[in-house]
Design a binder for these strands. Structure first.
Lengths: 345, 345
DNA sequence: TATTAACACGAAACCGTTTTCGCAGTTGAT
DNA sequence: ATCAACTGCGAAAACGGTTTCGTGTTAATA
């Protein structure tokens, strides 16, 4: 095994001091052209590369950013991750990913592990369990240490930090509104348990749209599905129980796809008899039959924005206690109109 | 900003030496019970956590593993990644992900960056461009430095390292064989350009199955699709040109889904008129209409196996020059029978 | 000729740990 | 009383860099 060459090795070989080598490699004016060239030639020859760890220790900067997401096998998070990775990489940062698996404990453990010098900052989406427990001490711990934090999608207001979100309520309102305008009368909502803040906000938008149109919200038309497990027939029972429903707003892609399949199996035509609109523009939406009309959250852009905010903080000096330094970026969404909903009357 | 506490701080406060603090925290017998307790109590109180970077520098071990994959928004790679992350995390390792984006240059740059001390080993799938160029010097560079490397899925024989693969040829043979047994006569193949070794092997299996059944391979029935871009109507033209085709073997999920849609749009019934079998058991396969019969590569298991091999190497002393130390693990595949292919006659 | 400035380089501190080794001071045995 | 062994701790080197501050040599200036 070829031992990796260090400054010390070069210094020994060339019979100069370590400092001289270090400076020569940085092309410091302090070192004579002669020596500089000699050192640089030698370094090139033996393919010298400085040790990242040593530099990190010295600079107290790792050029690593930590990303903690609930799940990686999930199109939305994957897309955001790509945006983060792309932006970070272009600026010389590497990305360490930890998957919390929707577990509070894993989230805490991973954060603490990374917070001890491994990363310069965090980008994360809260796990479901964290949102349910409403316990954010691990986040506070980290920000108190002066480690920059950017939350996206699954965020909380309890922590002073940057945020990248979409306007979930407006989006929920918008899609419901569009269905109403297209003449739909009985609009159902397929959502998750309400502790997920995005779901709660989308639901709130749904409710507001109905109310704004003088339609009373019927709690029976709101179906709360367990989001981690397979739907145990809840949707099917719901669709059978409510033949009058002519449109469904779904808080994610998968609920919509499953719903559509079941509706079709029950002999209902999509979108003629019943329209479906989802959230997240993943491959499923594009390739399902019919293809799904859905809200594109522009995950990649969210990721890039989050990375930009984080790296900005990392590289700039700033006053942590100044609330004005924290921004909440709202990424505009786009409704992708496909086949699963009739929106033009 | 609360400054992170160090050994030095504790030593100063308690008026002992840094060495004493270090030993006390490790519960060394060398230190009196009194001092130990005092130090430990103080450390707990101020929530002392050792600096990972300093430890890495000292130990020359980072507890980070580098993962380089061509694409993260791709179900198979994501699944493998989850397996890696799961296994690694359980053993106290973090995972740094770099996306090569199918580009040779990015792959090289990322590897070189990480190889300078940031990681203890690599797990990777080669980019398409790397496979096309057949240039593996960056891999050789890394292994020469004694950095363990595990290749998965997109591998090469040119490098001495561990590998985790499926038997692509056998799988290609198997699915073709099953279609033949089910009475299909004109079986087409939708594949990528042949420089991707997995595609090449699957094609080889397809050919062998046909030959074994006395059916001449008809090159016209092999459609090579650009895999990075949207299919510009090639599949459609193919299906129109070959109405006699009654089954298609596809080297990935997306080719199969697109093929099915087009076939259906052309008025052909799937699976009655034409059967489709794909590779990769992603969400698309499960939720398409009809659902896709596909080869499950068990990505998560591949990831776990790769991580196990890597961490084994990292933590064990071994002789790099001994070829016997390198293993190629073949993960058994499973054919998931769904609706898109009639396999029982 | 004495002073000074520029030049080229090295010593050493520092980042935060771990670990070896040595050194007092105490204890117990001879 | 002498020596050995043990106890409890600290100094210092090491990991691989960066950076500040000297310092000796040479050449220019008074």
């Amino acid at each position: 095994m070829k031992h990796k060459i260090t400054l010390k090795d070069i210094a020994r070989e060339l019979d100069v001091s370590i400092s001289t080598v270090s400076k020569a490699l940085k092309n410091s004016e302090e070192i004579s052209t002669d020596t500089r060239e000699k050192v640089q030639a030698f370094a090139r020859l033996y393919n010298y590369k400085p040790n990242n760890i040593a530099i990190s220790l010295k600079n107290k900067r790792t050029k690593n950013i930590g990303v903690i997401i609930p799940d990686i096998v999930h199109h939305f998070f994957t897309t955001v991750f790509r945006g983060i990775e792309k932006y970070a990489n272009a600026r010389g940062y590497n990305v360490i990913v930890c998957v919390s698996d929707e577990s509070f404990d894993k989230e805490v453990i991973n954060m603490e592990l990374l917070a001890n010098g491994s990363i310069d900052g965090f980008i994360m989406a809260l796990s479901a369990e964290t949102q349910m427990r409403n316990d954010f001490n691990h986040l506070r711990e980290v920000t108190n240490q002066g480690i920059p934090l950017v939350l996206f999608d699954r965020v909380t207001e309890e922590i002073t930090c940057d945020r990248v979100i979409i306007d979930d309520e407006a989006a929920g309102r918008e899609v419901t509104q569009r269905l109403l305008r297209a003449g739909r009368k009985r609009i159902a909502l397929f959502t998750t348990e309400s502790y997920l803040n995005v779901s709660a906000k989308r639901e709130s938008g749904y409710r507001k749209a109905l109310e704004a149109n003088g339609i009373p919200v019927n709690a029976d038309l709101i179906l709360r599905l367990p989001f981690q497990f397979e739907d145990e027939g809840f949707s099917e029972a719901f669709l059978k129980r409510h033949p009058e429903v002519d449109a469904v707003v779904c808080v994610n892609e998968i609920f919509a796809i499953r719903g559509m399949r079941l509706a079709q199996q029950l002999g209902r035509r999509v979108p003629e008899d019943i329209s479906f609109i989802g959230f997240t523009d993943g491959i499923l939406s594009r390739y399902s039959s019919p293809s799904l009309t859905t809200v594109d959250q522009h995950g990649e852009q969210m990721g890039e924005t989050a990375a930009a905010l984080l790296i900005g903080k990392v590289e700039r000096e700033y006053d942590e206690t100044d609330e004005d330094n924290y921004r909440t970026e709202v990424i505009p969404v786009t409704l992708i109109e496909r086949e699963s909903a009739l929106l033009r009357t």
